[in-house]
């Protein structure tokens, strides 16, 4: 990898715990992500990797622990009015891409991408449109600007969803199994867009995925989740080729 992240810490997770009822899904996660870094999280389903991502932008409230994104620092636990506003600030600094896209079906592609800048950031319509077109070009879908999501393929939908998140100009992008809902022949185009974000924009990204090829080529760091803790992490060349723990090795053997 020619370019290496060397900047400040964009995202910091400290001692994060998450319970669903009495089930402890996250059992003390610590993580730092630097500007421009690409972290791939992998592990069995139910190991807590998606929950971590959803806790980072408070789609799930962490039971305990601290999340900090670009200086916005939040504790887990109950929400207060003040905290709700801070959560909103934090979410503006994070972009989220969902497994099932969740494009807004009542808006055109362009409308989807303009929505955040206009409604949340109160940008003028012309400026928002310029921004939206820029990011639609970025994901190679400028020609679909006026189409509605129902007319797009799964891969195209996910690329629009990526553009929608990028248009908020976030400091960190969260990808929650972005290719898991796609037909095999459509996975490549989405991964290609993600790769270009990493290599050309040096976008800070946390990616939950089972695409080990992507992890090997694009990630600076991979983290293996097991039963709510990070069992093993490090550069992909080390972790994926020479896993230390037997669980990691078993999982990698099963996926590859």
């Amino acid at each position: 990898m020619s370019w290496q992240p060397n900047g400040d810490v964009v995202l910091r997770v400290e001692n994060l715990h998450k319970y669903f009822g009495t089930l402890e899904v996250l059992r003390g996660i610590d993580m730092e992500v630097h500007r421009g870094e690409v972290v791939v999280i992998f592990g069995r389903s139910g190991s807590g990797k998606s929950t971590l991502l959803r806790c980072v932008n408070f789609l799930e409230d962490p039971t305990a622990g601290t999340i900090e994104v670009s200086g916005v620092r939040l504790e887990g636990g109950h929400r207060t009015r003040h905290k709700r506003e801070l959560i909103r600030q934090l979410r503006i600094k994070t972009g989220m891409v969902f497994q099932d896209f969740q494009l807004f079906p009542h808006m055109s592609t362009l409308g989807n991408v303009m929505e955040g800048p206009m409604t949340v950031k109160k940008k003028h319509e012309d400026e928002a449109r310029g921004l939206a077109m820029h990011f639609l070009e970025r994901v190679g879908l400028a020609d679909k600007a006026d189409e509605y999501p129902i007319r797009l393929s799964g891969g195209q939908k996910q690329r629009v969803a990526i553009a929608r998140a990028l248009a908020m100009e976030p400091d960190v992008m969260l990808f929650d199994e972005p290719t898991s809902a796609l037909d095999p022949e459509l996975i490549g185009e989405v991964l290609e867009v993600m790769r270009s974000l990493a290599t050309e924009l040096h976008m800070t990204m946390i990616v939950v995925t089972h695409e080990m090829g992507f992890a090997r080529e694009v990630a600076h760091r991979v983290a293996f989740f097991h039963e709510g803790v990070i069992l093993e992490e490090g550069p992909p060349s080390e972790v994926l080729s020479n896993p230390r723990s037997p669980e990691t090795k078993r999982f990698i053997d099963a996926v590859l």
Binding site: L59, R91, G95, L103, F104, E115, V120
Partner: peptide, 23 residues
């Protein structure tokens, strides 16, 4: 309107009013 639509609006940083009115 699916739960995920609300989450997508939340993730963009919309407040409750914006989420309801726009999404």
């Amino acid at each position: 309107v699916g739960h995920g639509q609300g989450e997508a609006a939340d993730a963009l940083g919309m407040n409750y009013r914006q989420k309801m009115r726009r999404i």
